[in-house]
Simulated scan of single mutants.
Amino acid sequence: MATNSYHNVWDALTDSPEEALNLRLRSQLMMECSELVKKWNIPQKDAAKRLHITQPRLNDLLNGKITKFSLDALVNLLSNADMRVEVKVKQRKAAKEPAHA
């Protein structure tokens, strides 16, 4: 029986590297936003109001329901929380090219 090895959990759960990357980014933004809300130490209804969302939507965020949030939505939530999201784009490591004869 062969065992597969994955770089991260999202690679194991998705069919494409693009989808895995999207989920990884959404997960990072969700965790940042959730931690921020918890640091506020205020009732959920007040936190939801601060983020300009409903309390059930905030509950989805705090419970990690990643499929309910797009990257756009998460960036907007963080902006509503007076946070700035920065994006860094880097070249992938190049695969080794085969030696020429």
Rank of each mutant, 00 (worst) to 15 (best):
E97D: 13
A99S: 08
E86F: 05
S34H: 07
M1I: 10
I66E: 12
S16P: 02
N76R: 13
M83F: 00
K65I: 00
L36C: 13
Q44R: 07
L21F: 03
P43E: 12
R24G: 07
K88F: 13
A94I: 05
V87R: 09
M31N: 08
I66H: 04
S70L: 06
K65R: 01
W10C: 05
L36A: 12
N80E: 15
V75K: 02
A2T: 10
S27A: 01
A12W: 02
Q91C: 07
A95H: 14
P98E: 06
N76E: 15
L62A: 06
K65Y: 00
D60P: 01
P56K: 14
L77N: 09
D82L: 06
V75A: 04
T14H: 08
L36H: 15
L61C: 09
D72F: 03
K88V: 15
K65G: 00
T3N: 09
L21I: 09
N80A: 11
T3I: 10
S27H: 03
V37E: 05
Y6F: 02
I53K: 08
K96Y: 07
A73K: 15
H7W: 06
P56M: 08
H7P: 06
L13E: 04
N59M: 06
E35H: 13
N4D: 00
R24C: 09
A2S: 09
N41C: 04
D15I: 08
R92M: 06
V87M: 09
E35G: 11
T67K: 04
L36R: 14
E86K: 11
N80M: 11
L62Y: 05
Q55H: 08
R84L: 12
L23G: 07
N63W: 04
S70I: 10
R84G: 07
L62V: 08
E86W: 02
K96M: 07
K38L: 10
W10A: 12
N76G: 08
H52R: 15
M83E: 02
K93W: 01
N4W: 00
S16V: 01
N8C: 14
R57N: 13
S16Q: 03
A73V: 11
K90L: 08
W40S: 06
K96V: 14
D15T: 15
V9N: 11
V85F: 12
T54M: 00
S5H: 15
L58G: 02
N8G: 10
K38W: 06
R24S: 12
E86T: 09
P56L: 13
Q28D: 11
H52V: 10
I42R: 02
T67G: 02
H52L: 11
G64E: 08
D11T: 15
L29R: 02
N8V: 11
S27C: 00
E18G: 03
D46T: 05
V89S: 01
V37H: 07
H7D: 14
I66G: 06
L62M: 12
T67M: 02
V85N: 11
P98Q: 06
L51Q: 14
R26H: 01
K88Y: 15
K49R: 07
L78E: 14
P98M: 04
R24T: 15
H7C: 07
K93H: 05
K38N: 09
